[in-house]
Measured scan of single mutants.
Amino acid sequence: MPSETPQAEVGPTGCPHRSGPHSAKGSLEKGSPEDKEAKEPLWIRPDAPSRCTWQLGRPASESPHHHTAPAKSPKILPDILKKIGDTPMVRINKIGKKFGLKCELLAKCEFFNAGGSVKDRISLRMIEDAERDGTLKPGDTIIEPTSGNTGIGLALAAAVRGYRCIIVMPEKMSSEKVDVLRALGAEIVRTPTNARFDSPESHVGVAWRLKNEIPNSHILDQYRNASNPLAHYDTTADEILQQCDGKLDMLVASVGTGGTITGIARKLKEKCPGCRIIGVDPEGSILAEPEELNQTEQTTYEVEGIGYDFIPTVLDRTVVDKWFKSNDEEAFTFARMLIAQEGLLCGGSAGSTVAVAVKAAQELQEGQRCVVILPDSVRNYMTKFLSDRWMLQKGFLKEEDLTEKKPWWWHLRVQELGLSAPLTVLPTITCGHTIEILREKGFDQAPVVDEAGVILGMVTLGNMLSSLLAGKVQPSDQVGKVIYKQFKQIRLTDTLGRLSHILEMDHFALVV
């Protein structure tokens, strides 16, 4: 994948999101292997301009796509893939009243899908469409860049269908997702969380590099694949309309690839034109409109599966009536509230959605109805927002919020430890010299600072030695090549209790 991002070429006709291997024109390309080798690009942008032909009021008969309808489940399912879809609609009884809503608040519980998330729908649909058009064949390999849930859905379907599955996901995604993927037989590649989507090191860039190296491999490409919004247009939206008897006044959905909100909203605009569509985008993402909503100094966020630093091709923002931004604290607070007060075992993005819903639905009156999409299960986040310690460490809970008995030293300040200034190293000294210094002084790690004293990161003896043994660096290389740029900081005025929580999850903390 090139470091400079080429513009994806656009073909003359058809839909841009065809499933299957992508040609340089962004659509299915038939021909000899030699032709494909000559024409197939190194990668295709996940934010390529959409060429979708959908228009409100256009006859369904003019759609270029294969459409399906929700099917009634048999008493005995032939395999677990038949437990994807037909998820329950559940009334939220307490939270709406707590925040003064007059309307009825309903939750579409997508964590009841077989793999635990709304992404099971698009995973199965992308595979079925690729099999139907002859792209996927027995023994082929599926590769997908994902925040985890699409990966789980694909790995689940691949396990049943017999495909090899490789999932490329950023490091910030939970260990629970990784464990589930491994249990399903998927191979996992992790990428830096802070890598831009168009960087060769991003999950998108690495996935395309693997595709170019592995024979008979395919990126189904949830960011561009029409099967993504079509899955929701054909099934999720129809289920909502049936469950609500066609009567709903507002739908609120958090947005990642945009397939969920695009597919549902398009069908609702056709069948229930008075329904307002509300999009939820986390602070630090750029999906919301108008652009002024996205202006923030924050560039990272903890909530998973929603928000991006690019506009995915499948996201149709014209069908969203209003956007709201959400933050991590309210997302996790509301997710825990949904679990504790409503018994809905949902993930953090569901918290984002409901946090926005109780604001947006203030305009609705008694007798009206708001539906929220709860995308995934708490299963993926047992060591994250479900953990009091994690919430404390991230600053989303305060010590006084917890009532468990603490040891005698818990409320003492870090400054009472009488710490001395640490050994520091410059980023320009060599790895070999740094190892000598650390061994001589008896230290395992040291902060790396520039000549102005600005902290650049941390270097550890173990990481340097393993990097040297693996051949990633040489003793003569500058130590700046092996620094940890993500590390926890703590102030002298913070409590030892807070430091204790940090050290339970990290090997060190830097006192500043």
Rank of each mutant, 00 (worst) to 15 (best):
P2D: 15
T5M: 02
E9A: 13
V10C: 15
T13A: 12
C15F: 15
C15E: 09
P16F: 02
G20M: 15
S23N: 02
P33I: 15
E34P: 02
A38F: 15
A38D: 10
A38T: 14
K39Y: 02
P49H: 15
R51A: 02
Q55A: 06
R58A: 15
S63G: 02
H67M: 05
A69F: 13
P74C: 08
P74Y: 05
I80Y: 02
K82S: 07
P88V: 02
V90C: 15
K94L: 10
L101S: 02
L101A: 10
K102S: 02
K102F: 05
C103L: 06
E104P: 05
G115R: 13
S117G: 08
K119G: 06
R121H: 02
I122E: 04
R125S: 11
M126L: 08
D129N: 15
E131I: 08
D133V: 15
G134V: 02
T141C: 12
E144W: 02
P145I: 02
S147N: 02
G148L: 04
G148A: 13
A155D: 02
L156F: 06
A157R: 04
A157G: 11
I166A: 02
M169Q: 15
P170A: 05
M173P: 02
S174D: 02
S175C: 08
E176C: 02
K177T: 02
V178Q: 02
D179W: 07
V180W: 02
V180R: 04
V180I: 02
A183C: 12
A183S: 12
T191W: 04
P200T: 08
E201M: 04
S202V: 04
R209D: 02
P215L: 05
P215S: 07
I219P: 02
L220S: 04
Q222F: 05
R224A: 08
P229A: 06
A231I: 07
T236R: 02
A237N: 06
D238F: 09
D238I: 08
Q242C: 12
Q242L: 11
Q242V: 09
D245K: 02
D245S: 09
G246A: 05
K247I: 13
L248S: 04
M250E: 02
M250P: 02
T257R: 11
G259H: 04
G259V: 06
I261R: 02
I264P: 05
R266L: 02
K267Y: 06
K269Y: 10
